[in-house]
């Protein structure tokens, strides 16, 4: 499938959110006004340390939390200019799916395929189509042989793939992953990241991956860094990782290979190039620099 980056899918203008205490008084704001455009088919990583507001940002996008200020437009539909009806909220949540951190706390049914069916069942998808959607979603995440299993007997990565299948069975345009790999072992993370990449590349689904892992951010087309409720950086992984000091000042580390290039440059080695986000890119930059020195 050709990837089209023309249509803007999510548009936010000074989007802000504050938690309220029990008396309805506003506590310190979690998000202080974020303006960003996300295009259809983009793979965006949202970075930030704990408490930076990145998860709050994600929860605003499908109205699990209601923005206190600012404008939010999803798929050409303004969600902040009027009181939304229940149908409008449901339509939004069908378009923008979400996968959470803890795989155990988002599976509802006791059989894998019934859990995957949960979303489309809620949407009232009628029978032959429901079956097709469920089977296709399970196949997409490679869990066909586990369709009749009980979720609690699966590994963390497998459970998370079931959760993803549950979202794609609703045929969303965009999926938000809210630290979906944080509780997984390296193998499970790999499984989930491969699935995310495949959904973006092959199905054209817009992906927002909320994470604090730098190596996951490196896989995205674009990285947004949120700090203290504000947008700090926005660019390709290469551009963001070039600003090591700025990242460090907000408690984030660049990937190890980028760190190596930065340190060498600081010690006076001339290394040309910007491909900081991949190991291969850094390797090539170092290689050509060494070649130059050796002559």
């Amino acid at each position: 499938m050709d990837r089209q980056l023309s249509e803007i899918f999510i548009h936010t203008e000074n989007l802000a959110f504050s938690y309220k205490d029990e008396e309805g008084k506003i506590e310190s704001p979690a998000l202080r006004g974020i303006s960003v455009d996300i295009r259809e088919g983009e793979y965006v990583a949202v970075l930030g340390h704990n408490g930076s507001g990145k998860s709050t940002f994600a929860k605003l996008l499908n109205l699990i939390l209601e923005p206190t200020e600012g404008r939010l437009v999803v798929d050409g539909f303004d969600l902040t200019d009027h009181e939304l009806t229940d149908e409008e909220v449901l339509a939004l949540r069908r378009k923008v799916g979400m996968v959470f951190q803890n795989p155990d706390n988002q599976l509802v049914a006791t059989i894998v395929e019934e859990d995957v069916a949960f979303g489309p069942e809620n949407l009232g998808v009628p029978m032959p189509e429901l079956r097709e959607r469920v089977d296709r979603a399970i196949e997409t995440v490679g869990m066909t042989e586990y369709a009749q299993h009980e979720p609690h007997r699966l590994s963390g990565g497998q459970k998370q793939r079931v959760a993803i299948a549950g979202v794609i069975a609703m045929l969303p345009k965009c999926i938000i992953f809210d630290e979906s790999t944080a509780m997984l072992d390296p193998g499970g993370r790999r499984e989930v990241l491969d699935t995310i990449r495949m959904l973006n590349r092959e199905q054209g689904i817009t992906v927002l991956n909320i994470t604090h892992y730098m190596d996951e951010a490196a896989l995205a087309d674009r990285v947004i860094v949120i700090n203290d409720g504000e947008l700090l950086m926005d660019g390709t992984p290469d551009e963001v990782f070039a600003q090591r000091d700025k990242l460090q000042s907000v408690g984030l580390e660049v990937p190890q290979c980028a760190e190596l290039v930065h340190s060498l440059r600081e010690s006076g080695f001339a290394i040309e190039g910007e491909a900081l986000s991949t190991v291969e890119g850094c390797e090539e930059m170092l290689f050509s620099a060494i070649e130059k020195i050796v002559g």
Binding site: I64, D86, V108, N122
Partner: peptide
């Protein structure tokens, strides 16, 4: 805590009670 998270996850998957729900296994 699990209950809160599950409730958010169910909302995200458009759960709104039994009305208009179809079933995979009839």
């Amino acid at each position: 805590n699990r209950a809160f998270e599950l409730a958010a996850a169910m909302e995200c998957r458009c759960y709104h009670g039994g009305e208009g729900r179809t079933r995979l296994k009839v």
